[in-house]
């Protein structure tokens, strides 16, 4: 792949994601203060000392944004990876085995999907203990229903090919068929789907945090910061808009990259190669 072939939109997306990732990794080195330190008055406007002003408790907003990137990114990424592992494994197993296993898994999946995701998450998180691991798990399980659908569909396309039949006739087991025959041929559509689900995970986490069931204070995360500062909007304080804008920007960046990946994938599937 040549670097010049990457369109401008994808470059913007990649740059945005890289910037957030750098903030997340090197947060203690970049941030002027820590995320929990009260360093000024409540809702101070932007100044040389506080580049983005302070929040509802007088903490530096910029520092909290930088630490928040760390939490938001890590949780969303962990949830997406877990949901992919689960969804793909079950989806492929359903596609390859067919019959009863497929029916049970697919109908179980439909059952899960018939309950609105947000309500399901609110109930589950209200009952279960509030820690990061449970949060990631709940997000992953709910999201894996969508991945299951996609994984099963793309695997079914490949599973009917003659080379899969040839592997079956050789006597290969299901693991070889899933991981060596089918998975390599579905990687590109799954990769772009991964990006899309990652964007949804960021939004979902922000929603949960805004509702008070996601990341718990005093840890910083972008959705929670919108919630903390939302009352300021009434008084003309824009502190809530900064994390809100950051969420929007990150999701757009991820989508730009995914769009580009999708176009490359579709052109691989017999397009005219103009992607």
């Amino acid at each position: 792949m040549r670097l010049r072939a990457i369109p401008a939109g994808a470059w913007i997306g990649l740059a945005g994601i890289a910037a957030v990732a750098i903030c997340a990794i090197f947060a203690p080195l970049i941030a002027p203060y820590t995320d929990r330190q009260i360093v000024g008055g409540v809702w101070e406007p932007a100044s040389a000392r506080f580049l983005l002003g302070t929040d509802n408790l007088g903490r530096d907003l910029l520092s909290r944004m930088i630490y928040g990137a760390r939490v938001t990114l890590a949780v969303a990424l962990a949830a997406t990876i877990l949901s992919f592992g689960l969804g793909i494994l079950l989806g492929f197993a359903a596609a390859v085995s067919g019959g009863l296993i497929d029916a049970v898994l697919s109908r179980g999946n439909d059952l899960m999907m018939s309950i609105p995701t947000l309500i399901f998450a609110l109930v589950a998180l209200a009952i279960l203990p509030k820690n990061l691991f449970v949060l990631v798990l709940v997000m992953a399980v709910l999201d894996s229903t969508r991945v299951f659908r996609i994984g099963r569909a793309v695997a079914l396309d490949v599973a009917v090919m003659d080379f899969v039949e040839a592997a079956r006739l050789r006597g290969e087991g299901p693991l070889w068929i899933i991981f060596r025959e089918i998975l390599p041929n579905t990687l590109s559509p799954l990769l772009s789907e991964f990006g899309l689900r990652f964007a949804f995970a960021i939004l979902f986490l922000s929603t949960l945090s805004f509702l008070g069931l996601g990341i718990q204070p005093p840890a910083a995360d972008w959705g929670g910061m919108v919630k903390d500062n939302k009352d300021g909007i009434i008084f003309g304080i824009s502190a809530a808009l900064v994390p809100g804008a950051a969420i929007a920007a990150l999701v757009i960046c991820v989508n730009l990259v995914v769009d580009w990946l999708l176009r490359r994938t579709s052109s691989l599937k017999g397009g005219r190669g103009d992607g």
Binding site: M161, F163, A166, R180, P184, N185
Partner: peptide, 15 residues
């Protein structure tokens, strides 16, 4: 053993 009509689909394109 079996030899298929379409070698295109009988060989895994990623191997």
């Amino acid at each position: 053993q079996l030899i298929y009509q379409m070698a295109d689909t009988a060989l895994n394109p990623r191997q």
